[in-house]
Design a protein around this nucleic acid. Structure first.
Lengths: 251, 251
DNA sequence: CGACTTTTTGAGTCTAGTCAAAACATGTGG
DNA sequence: CCACATGTTTTGACTAGACTCAAAAAGTCG
């Protein structure tokens, strides 16, 4: 119950972050570009446009024609599917150096999910056509892209597995561990996850409701595994969370 | 309750099915080879080895070093993840012209799931290294492979969405429709799904239990939407099944 | 300080899971 | 061809985890 002051610290958009230097740094961090030598990175950089986005603003909507590939430069982007029943499903949360949008070289496709800015930030954008040109010029990039997509497929299948066999508590613990690994910041007492993201978001990631998320998080906090507040969570006892996930309950 | 005689018809392995002619036909059906001209297909064919498999036999296990890419020539293959709790998760069922195994060009990877023969059949096999050679020789194949993997990713995410938001009944209906689209055979009264596959398999596809699958299927059969027996299902009223899936229940 | 959003808590309900047993099918060997 | 052993499916009774609806509490922001 000891509720510490919120550790939330706002990131301010420095107008310089999408400077050429920063752009080069980000492109050099993307899994399918990072192996390239500086001149190639510089060439690729020239083909991207940058764009600032504000919290809540859409990059594209599910169903829009899939024309662009994006890189996250600064801030967080979430990928969401809207369902008929009003429940949204949160597929992924991305940050600096991640890609999203269309790799798809087939024309006439539509985005299968919406992309929304979770924070203020900056993204780099390239048309599918220009990206194809890059692939033509740097053939090994294509192989790396393939690997990157395969990895996303594996992640997605792991989530299918978890939704199929885990209890809500296990799914929430697993989601927290996953987020911590990807987006967490090391702090003295543990790993802070501060996207910012709400119970709502966590519910949409784990296929449950905000009320249930709240109850489970309270329980975990009571057991000293996490500390939590509005829009942030700190994992205090990672080991015991992992145990929770692995154990099929009491068996 | 009218239980018709089983429409199951055994497929016999014709020793000729993995003849050169059949192999060429299969390779010409694979999404990332089918655009190639006959000489290229013939060249690629030479690099594959064929292999017969019997029902229940594993092609590889989760965790084995991922050394080969496979094509299904004849029969059905299922991809399964084993979980600690003993529940298995059925990720996909594949048939003629589908690929599975490792596309992965990164060395030292392991298979993330097991592949088991659901029926007697025949598969084509190529080492990761040889596949890489093919990609080098036919660059547009790499792009097509990328598209194929993206498509699997989309499918996987659709399943995440369904597990997150659908009731068991909706998930089962959706799974039946998906299987029918992929593997169903048109019959007079409807579409027959006969892999063969059991309540057990359906439960592992939809993240539920055999008992629940049985109850739901009985209900659907009672409403005249399907007919069902041991190891097979016929979709009689596809339209009403689709309605079931789309409706968020009574809202 | 209000107005608003997010989070928590509570009570009641229902879906789906569990455990157990019966019914049914299929294949085998006598 | 029958009787039995085995595996699959169905049914039943009970339970529990998670959802729903509703309202209170706690943060946040102007």
């Amino acid at each position: 119950m000891a509720r510490p002051g919120t550790p939330v610290r706002l990131e301010w958009i420095d107008p310089a972050v999408c400077s050429v230097d920063y752009r080069l740094k980000i492109i050099g961090r993307v899994p399918f570009f990072k192996h390239l030598p500086p001149p190639a990175i510089a060439d690729i950089n020239r083909r991207f446009r940058d764009r600032e986005i504000q919290t809540g603003q859409p990059v594209y909507f599910e169903g829009d024609p899939a024309e662009n590939l994006y890189l996250v430069a600064l801030g967080k982007i979430k990928l969401i599917r809207h369902t008929g029943s009003g429940h949204d499903v949160l597929l992924d949360i991305l940050h600096g150096g991640d890609y999203f949008g269309s790799l798809s070289l087939a024309a006439g496709e539509a985005y299968a999910e919406s992309a929304l800015a979770q924070t203020d930030g900056c993204i780099l954008q390239i048309s599918a056509g220009d990206f194809k040109t890059i692939l033509g010029r740097y053939p090994d990039v294509t192989l790396k892209v393939l690997q990157a997509v395969e990895q996303r497929l594996q992640e997605s299948r792991r989530i299918v597995e978890q939704l199929s066999t885990y209890s809500v508590e296990q799914r929430i613990a697993a989601a927290l561990l996953r987020l911590a690994g990807k987006l967490g910041e090391q702090r003295g007492e543990g790993v802070l996850i501060q996207l910012p993201f709400s119970r709502q978001d966590l519910a949409a990631m784990t296929g449950t409701t905000t009320e249930t998320v709240s109850r489970v998080m309270s329980r975990l906090a009571g057991q000293g595994l996490i500390k939590t507040g509005r829009k942030w969570v700190t994992l205090v006892d990672r080991g015991r969370l992992e145990e929770l996930v692995e154990k099929p309950a009491v068996n």
